[in-house]
Structure formats: C-alpha cells, structure tokens
Nucleic acid binder design. Sequence first.
DNA 1: AGCACA
Length: 235
Amino acid sequence: MMSADIPPNQTIYVNNLNERVKKEELKKSLYALFSQFGRIADIVALKTTKLRGQAWVVFDEITAASNALRQMQGFPFYDKPMRIQYGKSKSDAIAKVDGTYVPREKRKKQEEKAEKRRKEQHETHQAGNGPATSYGAAAASQSQFQQGKPSSQEPPAPPNNILFIQNLPHETTTMMLQMLFQQYPGFKEVRMIEAKPGIAFVEYGDEMQASVAMQALQGFKITPQNPMLITYAKK
DNA sequence: AGCACA
C-alpha cells in the first residue's frame, strides 16, 4: 500500500518507532538522522500511551520533508523499520513563523462551542526537562563549513580507515553515532570508550570511505553546542 | 495502531 493520500507537508509523521527509547535520546537520534535533508525547525515526540512510538519531524522546507520521506522510508532505526508519512496538519513551529499560529488556549475556547464538555479530563504532569525547541537554533548550517574549534595543536594525522571523533555531547550513545555514520558506504563500527566521554572511533572499510564520511559529517551538531570534530585516528 | 505541539 502507498503512504496514504495525505498531501505534502513540511512535517513528516514517523511511526513504528522503538518505544523503549527515551524521549530525549529519540529526539536527538532523529535529529542526527534527518538533518541531512535540511534544516529542522522542531521535533515533537510524546510518551503518552496514545503517542508513544511516533514522532513529528518539522522541516523548514517541504522538499526536505519529501526527500526525507522517500529516502528514509523503512530505514532500520533502533531495530525497527521507520514508517513515514506526511503530517496531517501544520506544525506549531511552522505556524509561528508564518503568522498563522493560534495559541492552544484560545483554540480550545473556539472548539468548546462545538463540543461542550466531553472529556474534561486534563492530565497535566511531567515537567519536560529539555528545551525541545533547541533543535531549531541548532541546525543553522549543518554540513557546511563551520570552523569548529581545531583544538588540536598537532599536525593532522594521515588518512586512516578509522576516524577519531571529538567534542561529542556526553550523552551521545553508540547507537546515535551509528545512525549517522552508517549512512556512508564502507561503515564497519562505532567504538566509544566508557572512561572517556566525548570521543569515539568510527571504522570504515578503507581510507577513501572514511574520508567521504569525514567530509560529510565534519562539524555536524548533535546538540547546538557540540560541532563534532573529526580527524583520522592515529595509526 | 496510535497525527502533536501546553
């Protein structure tokens, strides 16, 4: 079957996500995976019974959303193939930008006229801990040249099929890096060292393949504060 | 399966 008759939208709706993955990690991994298609304005994921296993990835551009939908359809993500459709409605992040945003409070008032008090059950709990919108600011110029801090005073190591990644946020997981690096041919494995947060090694079949991945992901930000610095590992 | 953003 095809992915329904929903018209293109800047937002893609992703489901069949692994429900064991924690919300914040899920968002970061989705961000890492999807920002290759264009700037991401927001990612929405809730863990309520109704909404777990699903997420909305909001792109600035419809074309980015379309490419993401086509190319990532069925992508194995945390051991489950992603199912992707266009979102059914406009995301708040977009409405806020194009001026059509109506705060949720007022919207309720309008609806109440039509459907009095049906489910006056409000379950307001769980104070979200992270700025869910930080991604918007983050994505400024992914995969562009961004002079990250070349904190190394050493001459660059010669080409190697193993890459050395620095300046990662401490919450980075092997899985998150795998999502990113496995997109490039020749990918073998990610290695992180428990005792040394913030760095990782990524192995490819040969030096050429490693260099392609390095160019593609140099400066990539998993979080706004952390452009990754990629060099060849020392032999 | 399940279409939200507080």
